[in-house]
């Protein structure tokens, strides 16, 4: 087994055991991490594989959350909301991305920035639908086969299962011939283009799938928090998700998952500094980006490569000095 696989299994084991040793807050934070990880994974497909910056992932999170909450309030089962959230976000992603990707490279970022702010306004102003500033509540957590997910631990495992499923799907997408085209695209867009890869179509699909992941994450977000309001889906949240992808290492499969963990846990560890924690947190982000712009997994790869190179050096020199 490759070391990555072993590490993955170890982490999975830990994720199964962990909630039994945690209190309510710990379980909540773990569940929140899973939800944000799904959204960040989607953004990673857009950013890390297709090279497009989207600043609207929070808007998709919101669309998913409101869709699911409204449907559940109307009495539909969770998975209807979940499926519809994915579908709507995929569609909106296509509609938004198609014209934006026609124009220049970095313009998807600007269009999505405007889109996120507009969606927020709609959430706040259309009170008849979204509850406006006061938000929506009063939708229960889903239950399956008679098991209610009202218990935080049960809901955690439910989220974990969905997360693993979605991660597997994404992994499959990235490995498929279609996904390999992505990698070609990332490494050399001009060559990929000349080899017959339709760059614009590929990029558009990546953005739409990434958006759908945002919608599905939102679909889980609503029953987790049991309350949604426009404030949770502002541009700030989009930037936070972007931070997760970049800190973890964009383009690495596990990057956004690690990034989400760090972005959620770091404020926890710094809480003892009272009012200073955001200052220290933001400073650490700046330092990390200065030292390692390719994120934590980029740093790991670089270090690992350096260690390998050094140890092979040593072996050679050891071999050389042997009589």
């Amino acid at each position: 087994m490759r070391p990555m696989t072993i590490a993955g299994l170890a982490v999975l084991g830990l994720l199964i055991v962990l909630p039994f040793g945690l209190k309510g807050y710990g379980i909540y934070i773990l569940s929140l991490w899973i939800v944000y990880s799904i959204a960040a994974m989607g953004l990673n497909l857009t950013l890390g594989y297709a090279g497009q910056v989207s600043l609207a992932q929070a808007a998709f999170l919101g669309i998913g959350a409101y869709t699911t909450a409204l449907l559940m309030k109307a009495g539909y089962p969770f998975f209807v909301g979940f499926g519809l959230s994915a579908g709507i976000c995929f569609g909106v992603g296509l509609i938004l991305g198609y014209p934006a990707l026609r124009v220049q490279h970095h313009f998807l970022a600007f269009v999505t920035l405007g889109f996120n702010a507009l969606v927020w306004l709609v959430f706040r102003n259309e009170e008849w639908l979204t509850g406006g500033t006061y938000g929506l509540m009063g939708f229960s957590r889903p239950s399956f086969f008679g098991v209610s997910t009202n218990n935080p631990v049960v809901f955690y495992f439910f989220s974990l299962a969905l997360f693993l499923l979605l991660a597997f799907v994404l992994w499959w997408i990235v490995r498929s011939p279609w996904g390999r085209a992505f990698q070609a695209l990332r490494e050399n867009p001009i060559r990929a283009n000349s080899l017959g890869v339709d760059v614009r179509r590929m990029t558009l699909l990546a953005f739409a799938i990434g958006s759908a992941y945002g919608g599905m994450a939102g679909s889980l977000f609503a029953p987790l928090v049991e309350f949604i309001d426009p404030q949770s889906f502002m541009l700030d949240t989009s930037l936070m998700l972007l931070l997760m992808v970049i800190v973890g290492g964009s383009g690495h499969f596990f990057g956004p998952i690690l990034g989400a963990l760090l972005v959620i846990l770091l404020p926890e560890w710094l809480r003892f500094t009272e009012g200073l924690y955001l200052i220290i947190y933001a400073s650490l982000v700046i330092v990390l980006l200065a030292v390692c712009p390719s994120g934590l997994l980029g740093l790991y790869e670089r270090t690992a490569a350096a260690v390998r190179a050094r140890s092979s050096d040593r072996r050679e020199s050891a071999g050389g000095s042997a009589p």
């Binding site: 931070l243 955001l278 400073s283 700046i286 712009p293």
Partner: peptide, 18 residues
Amino acid sequence: GVLPIVIATIALGIVMRD
């Protein structure tokens, strides 16, 4: 490239604000 700078300046904004 552009992206690390975008994130770093967002973080810088937080540092200044807080």
